[in-house]
Design a protein around this nucleic acid. Structure first.
Length: 747
DNA sequence: GAGTTTGAAACT
DNA sequence: CAGTTTCAAACTC
């Protein structure tokens, strides 16, 4: 178990990898160089305003993250494998994990470490006990995906302050370390060639990602050779394990799968992680702090990260995989977990558009390596879903958001290839996808700002003035967010979740029915008749619900008026499944008719708030934050429907969704708050789609139509509130799911 | 591209 | 909690 860890820890940071033939070899290899340069340039541009050091730090972080993940994954795997061997094959062997985790940390620390002071040994020694889960989580943070799961994000934030000082130094060192990482990855590649071969898909993705990133890093950071050597050393060792791991990962996926099939499981893990994280070793925190760069990106990748964390938590193996979020994830991740985490705030942006189908991403193979990386990450998120292929959770992240996030993330933006953007546009409506905010007075620190609302930093595409929503002003951003969250816990909640067909273009699928926290509140349209983008419901592609206070609603995605009918339908479904009331067959029929009226509706389950997907989303949001308005909305016109819904809820729950999976696994949040809504929505006003159980399933890999569960938006920021709540984490699904795109800084 | 409209967010 | 103001997106020209 410990051997790997020890090796990492023991290895003198200064060990000379440079001398090693491998090192030289790697240096020579740089097929990917061009990409790097591109990245660099992009990143720089993105951060024009930022000083060089910051930029570098930022820039590095993302890459680092990527590397980390890859490394970690591999190394962790390798370790795991080793540990397993030593342990006698008990995969779950905690000690093993801890060791693995430790090792991973060591790697990460070396890679990302802002300062050499953070020694691998430090990391290496962290107490294994509770850390098992926590560690993985940490890695997740670091992971490119970034999910800055709320938990992580928070921590990291806290630590960030410390780290910031080091940032400048990091920038310089990052390059070195990155290089190390690269080396490690490459080495791994060399060593682990077999593994890669073993699972082309999964590994391939990882590799591609790794390569791209590594290559880029290598090119960019060659100068830092000295440090590299150290890194090399570690890397080399890691590589061995990694390669091993890679080979194993494919196999391990099964294990991961075992862990927590259900979404609830995911949540559970997160919570565990959260808790653990809190208790985690300071060392770990250091690592996290080091990774803060990653946090920034969180928005984009949070989802993925989330999934990653979960996965890791669930199974060590998954951890290793996390890096390769894309494919590897899918394979490795426990099914239950998939999807949930993903959503990003970035999604919030999506509303506008369009949910870019991320299938592409999932498919993962994009011409540009960079894209692959990014996509892979995204994909991973999406892939979380059980059926990577068939049903993916798509995160509607806008390219912009996702990619866009970018600037901060550098990686994202950089990595985001034109194709992505194109994709956005394709999916989306228009080029808008890329469009960003154009705030003038809000300084991009209010929800008016799409970027801010989405939990992403403003980037190049933005035309904002006096923007403070930048990594440089992270503290301000965080504090502002806190304030907003305090005011409205759901402020950053995901707007919509969507279930869509497996079809690659899900984004556009009329079928998909998003639900969003905001929609929970409902719109308040008066003149737009809910037929224009002014209407959030319409914008999100969801029907208005009982929560809406709109006037003369003509929402083509469904009306609240129809809610009652829909509800009834749901009831009927419930009956079908179980014994839900027969009460309103007629109503149901009516509902169906209405649905038919809207072509889109047919497929779409419509209502927002409460689809399975919504349940997923809810997880995060609901628990902690209750929508401020909901009461209002309910009280409003729709109330009747609402009451119905509630009434039906029980039946629905029991019968349908209740679904074993959800109820069981689902955190209370899912079950509770929206359950009624969920039922309703699942049924969808349209009437066509209905069975809630499916929804529940939707989360699960097997959704009926092979629909993808797409999270359009996820609460990017872990609600600060949530954090506090996290203590009661189990209950608060919100926390678990919320991944703060932006890392919450030290609160 | 400029101006108007709209509704959410923020403020009182 | 309600009403008003501010704001930026959406929309129109």
């Amino acid at each position: 178990m410990d051997t790997p860890d020890r090796a990492a820890a023991q290895q003198p940071p200064a060990s000379r990898a440079e001398d090693s033939p491998v090192f030289s070899f790697i240096n020579n290899l740089s097929p990917i160089e061009p990409l790097k340069s591109a990245y660099n340039a992009n990143s720089l541009q993105g951060y024009q305003s930022i000083n060089i050091t910051s930029i570098s730090s930022i820039f590095t972080s993302p890459h680092d993250n990527v590397h980390k993940e890859t490394r970690l994954a591999k190394s962790s795997l390798g370790e795991i494998s080793e540990s397993e061997a030593s342990a006698g094959g008990s995969k779950t062997n905690k000690p093993a994990r801890s060791s693995n985790a430790v090792r991973l940390f060591a790697c990460t620390s070396t890679i990302t470490q802002e300062t050499h002071t953070v020694t691998c040994s430090d990391v290496a020694d962290p107490p294994t006990g509770p850390c098992d889960l926590a560690q993985p989580a940490q890695f997740d943070n670091g992971s490119p995906d970034h999910n800055t799961t709320p938990c992580h994000g928070v921590r990291s934030d806290l630590k960030q302050d410390k780290c910031r000082k080091l940032d400048a130094v990091q920038a310089v060192k990052n390059t070195v370390e990155k290089r190390k990482c690269l080396f490690s990855t490459e080495i791994q590649l060399l060593d682990g060639g077999q593994p890669v071969n073993d699972s082309d898909d999964v590994l391939g993705c990882e590799w591609s990602d790794l390569i791209s990133t590594t290559s880029g890093e290598l090119l960019a950071f060659d100068s830092t050779m000295d440090d590299h050597h150290r890194g090399m050393h570690l890397a080399a060792k890691n590589a061995e394990s990694c390669g091993y791991l890679l080979s194993k990962l494919t196999g391990d996926s099964e294990i991961s799968g075992r862990a927590h099939p259900s979404a609830s499981g995911q949540v559970y893990y997160q919570e565990l992680v959260m808790g653990e994280d809190q208790t985690e070793n300071p060392q770990i925190f250091q690592v996290e702090s080091q990774q803060r760069g990653i946090r920034r990106r969180c928005l984009v990748f949070e989802a993925a990260g989330f999934s990653n964390t979960v996965v890791q938590k669930e199974t060590v193996e998954s951890l290793s995989v996390s890096t390769c979020k894309g494919k590897s994830h899918v394979q490795t991740q426990p099914r239950g977990l998939r999807g949930i985490g993903l959503h990003l705030n970035a999604l919030a942006l999506t509303p506008k558009g369009k949910m870019a189908s991320q299938d592409h991403m999932a498919s993962g193979l994009r011409p540009s390596l960079a894209e692959k990386d990014v996509h892979g990450k995204f994909l991973s998120a999406g892939e979380n879903f059980p059926n990577s292929g068939g049903e993916l959770l798509e995160f509607p992240m806008d390219d912009c958001s996702a990619g866009g996030f970018p600037v901060n993330d550098h990686v994202s933006s950089q990595s985001v290839s034109p194709q992505k953007k194109r994709r956005k546009t394709d999916n989306g409506d228009d080029g808008e996808a890329c469009k960003r905010c154009s705030c003038k007075k809000s300084k991009c620190l209010k929800l008016y700002c799409e970027c801010f609302a989405a939990g992403v930093y403003c980037s190049e595409p933005c035309s904002c003035q006096g923007c403070l929503n930048k990594p440089i002003h992270e503290e301000i951003v965080l504090s502002t967010r806190k304030q907003i969250e305090f005011r409205n816990p759901l402020a950053f909640a995901p707007k919509v979740i969507r279930m869509s067909d497996a079809g690659p273009e899900t984004g556009e699928d009329p079928n998909s029915t998003p639900a969003s926290a905001r929609h929970k509140r409902g719109c308040n349209c008066k003149k737009s008749s809910c037929l224009k983008k002014y209407c959030e419901c319409y914008q999100g592609g969801v029907g208005c619900s009982s929560n809406c206070r709109c006037e003369s609603c003509k929402n083509t995605f469904g009306r609240r008026d129809a809610d009652s009918e829909l509800i009834e339908e749901i009831k009927q479904e419930g009956e079908q499944t179980e014994n839900c009331g027969k009460e309103k067959e007629n109503d149901q029929q009516k509902a169906n008719v209405q649905n038919e009226d809207h072509p889109l509706l047919d497929l779409v389950p419509i209502t927002p708030p409460f689809d399975l997907s919504s349940s997923l989303l809810k997880l995060p949001n609901f628990s902690s934050a209750k929508p401020p308005r909901p009461s209002k909305a309910r009280s409003g016109n729709s109330r009747s429907s609402a009451s119905k819904a509630t009434a039906t809820l029980q039946s629905c729950k029991s019968s349908k969704v209740a679904g074993s999976a959800i109820d069981e696994g689902m955190p209370d949040i899912l079950k509770e708050a929206d359950s009624p809504n969920n039922c309703v929505k699942t049924t969808s006003p349209n009437g066509k789609r209905v069975s809630p159980p499916h929804n529940a399933l939707s989360i699960s890999p097997n959704r009926k139509g092979g629909r993808k569960l797409i999270l359009k938006s996820i609460p990017s920021f872990p609600s600060l509130m949530g954090e506090s709540n996290s203590g009661s984490a189990m209950n608060d699904t919100d926390n678990t799911f919320n991944v703060s795109p932006l890392v919450l800084g030290p609160s």
